Simulated scan of single mutants.
Amino acid sequence: MRSVIVVGAGQSGIAAAGALLASGLRPVVLEAGQDTAGSWPRYYDSLRLFTPAHFNTLPGLPFPGDPERYPTRDEVADYLRARAAALDCAMHTGQRVVTVTRTAGGYLARTEQGAEFTGAAVVAATGSFDSPHRPELPGLAGYTGTVLHAADYHRPAPFAGQRVVVVGSGNSAVQIAVELAEHARVSLASRTPVRYATSEPVPGGSRFWSVLAAASRIPAGPLFGHGSVPVLDTGGYRAAIEAGRPDRRELFTGARDSSLRWPTGDAEHVDTVILATGYRPALDYLRPLGVLDETGLPEQRFGLSRTQRGLAYLGLEYQRTILSATLHGVGRDAGHIARTLAARMTRAARRPRY
């Protein structure tokens, strides 16, 4: 068997399918939604990539348009649809995988819709958008206002005139807070200060992107996996925050009804708290294989399972490089995984059978 089940048809799944085809394998892509753009259509309306278009090309299809611009959410979704349409492989939408188990010849994937698919190997490429991280914040205990995750945020209009606190210090937290500050009174709250990748805003044509691209080729991602990602200031975010739009604060320390208490001792009414606190890999369908630790993270090295031969991952943060979870990084990682799986299958086929 040369077929490989690819779970997910977002940027990781599409990159995996292309790389598997190039390595002589037959990908069978299973996507829970009805679209081959993954989670991109569900992100907040104003989302732009924090890297320029030329930095976000999957193998086989250049990103169209001005290569120095920062593409929008919808442009990325359209790009992924176009790349998926060009792939000569089985692609099944509306098939949510609920379990993956071992068989004598490889793996069996069962879907919520009752379908079954078999393959010699599996690439888990489901990303993390369906698994938003909502940390236990002691300061929120007793808070009766609205608490949302960034995954639930789409546009600023519903928050007009409100008092809003955005929790987080990463790219999404900064972008959402700055956008909301034009419509509401907003604070950006976090345990640690916002860290910026550069001292000045980064234009699309900056040499910085060449340096970052070179750094992203080094398979040293696991060494950086425990630190927060610095903010790429591509939209004047730093200037806005330093001007107090939004203001930046230490994380609140307590709550009572709809009021939050700040480290200074002051308390104030807050309408909405938005948790821009990241995501965790959405891999529950792999639990029957026993490959996840107590936190739900897979035991893997450079995207290859440590315990199940023929099981691979794509799109995990820092799985191989510092950009493994990005559109830029998944293409290179997909090639590494596909070549490894193909080599292993070839060796297995050559073993004598008695």
Rank of each mutant, 00 (worst) to 15 (best):
residue 340 T to Q: 08
residue 36 T to A: 11
residue 86 A to R: 13
residue 13 G to Y: 01
residue 309 R to N: 02
residue 338 A to G: 00
residue 288 P to V: 04
residue 120 A to R: 10
residue 289 L to Y: 00
residue 79 Y to G: 02
residue 106 G to A: 05
residue 66 D to E: 05
residue 30 L to T: 01
residue 100 V to Q: 03
residue 17 A to Q: 03
residue 329 G to M: 11
residue 345 M to L: 15
residue 316 L to A: 12
residue 25 L to G: 02
residue 255 A to D: 08
residue 47 L to M: 15
residue 111 T to Q: 05
residue 224 F to T: 12
residue 307 T to V: 09
residue 273 V to I: 13
residue 233 D to T: 13
residue 208 F to H: 15
residue 289 L to R: 02
residue 284 D to L: 00
residue 21 L to C: 03
residue 228 S to E: 15
residue 245 R to G: 00
residue 347 R to K: 14
residue 283 L to N: 06
residue 8 G to A: 05
residue 211 V to T: 14
residue 319 Q to L: 09
residue 320 R to G: 03
residue 351 R to T: 15
residue 203 P to L: 09
residue 254 G to E: 09
residue 113 Q to A: 12
residue 28 V to Q: 07
residue 319 Q to E: 15
residue 81 R to F: 01
residue 127 G to R: 10
residue 187 S to C: 06
residue 54 H to F: 15
residue 179 E to P: 05
residue 70 Y to A: 06
residue 210 S to V: 00
residue 290 G to R: 07
residue 17 A to C: 03
residue 345 M to D: 05
residue 12 S to N: 12
residue 118 T to C: 06
residue 80 L to W: 05
residue 117 F to S: 02
residue 81 R to L: 05
residue 80 L to H: 07
residue 175 Q to M: 10
residue 269 H to T: 12
residue 96 R to E: 07
residue 312 A to E: 07
residue 19 A to F: 01
